[in-house]
Amino acid sequence: MSITILADSACDLSEHYYNEYNIEMIPLTVHLNEKDYRDSIDISPKTIYDAMREGQTPKTSQASVNQFKEIFTSYAKAEKPLLYIAFSSELSGTYQAAKIVEQEIKEDYPEAQLHIIDSKCASLGLGLVVLEAAKMARQNISFDELIAQTDKNAGRMEHIFTVDNLEYLYRGGRVSKTAALVGGLLNIKPLLHVEGGKLIPLEKIRGTKKVLKRMIEVMDKRGNNLENQIIGISHGDDLPRAQELSKLIQDKFSVKGENIIIEMVGSVIGAHSGPGTLALFFCNK
């Protein structure tokens, strides 16, 4: 029996991937102008970025227990295997909500093939893990094998990213007001990565061009077999800079353009990172 992959909207994949690989998606929620929107369904990232440029501060919330209960129950009743690959538990409560429901479902349906992986990934880093799992699910692979390999893939996913304006990280409580102010005055761009599912600062760099160069250097040091893997780039409404980074990767590592996926950072993550965010995802050594 074929295995279905469930992802949440924080994986930042375009709709055509869900359709092509039969991936189920559960949306997180964005709050803007006193209204609630389902991420990637009712609102576009562009709307969020435009609102933030105008000084608004969107809020976000995790997927609910009821959303998971509906999906998990339908698969358990139909005796269909379901693997949910969750947004990092260090960045959202969505994973915990899913685990609560999983326990309830397995009490009612002890034989249910239902498993949840805390990916410790975000944005297109999560998206690449989801995509690879969906491809494997089409092959003759057991549920346990798929779980083990997906867990391994998630553990090897590098996230290297920068933000254009420290003010947005300040609003979200990620940096101090002083750091945001000084960073803006000195054109300082923070380089961050994800470690253990958490956002960890790597270094501070002065100037946009130097940031791209440094991202390539980190990729060179950490990457493994780059020319033979799918690489992800996500951006906060700044496609030209994402394409510039893509070109640098192709030139440096002999990566084919079709092996680089470029997506916009979705509404939920973008509400915290802001317009101008640039993120790079690849498998490490």
Rank of each mutant, 00 (worst) to 15 (best):
D8W: 04
A10L: 05
Y18Q: 01
N19E: 15
N19R: 14
I26L: 10
V30G: 05
E34C: 12
E34V: 12
D36W: 03
Y37V: 11
I43T: 06
M52T: 11
R53F: 14
E54W: 01
E54F: 04
E54P: 00
G55W: 09
Q56R: 10
T60Q: 01
S61E: 10
K69H: 13
S74K: 15
A76L: 11
K77Q: 15
L82N: 07
S88A: 12
Y95V: 05
Q96D: 14
I100W: 00
I105N: 04
D108Q: 15
D118F: 09
A122R: 03
G125K: 01
L126Y: 00
G127D: 06
L128D: 06
V129K: 04
V130M: 08
V130Q: 03
M136V: 05
R138T: 14
I141A: 08
L146S: 09
Q149A: 14
M157D: 06
I160F: 11
T162E: 05
N165R: 14
L166I: 10
G173Q: 09
S176P: 04
K177M: 13
T178K: 13
G184V: 03
L185M: 15
P190L: 03
L192H: 07
K198R: 14
K198C: 03
L199V: 15
P201H: 07
R206Y: 04
E217R: 06
E217Q: 11
V218L: 15
N224L: 12
I231D: 02
L239V: 02
P240R: 08
S246T: 07
I249A: 04
Q250M: 13
M264V: 13
S267F: 00
V268M: 03
H272A: 05
S273F: 08
G276F: 07
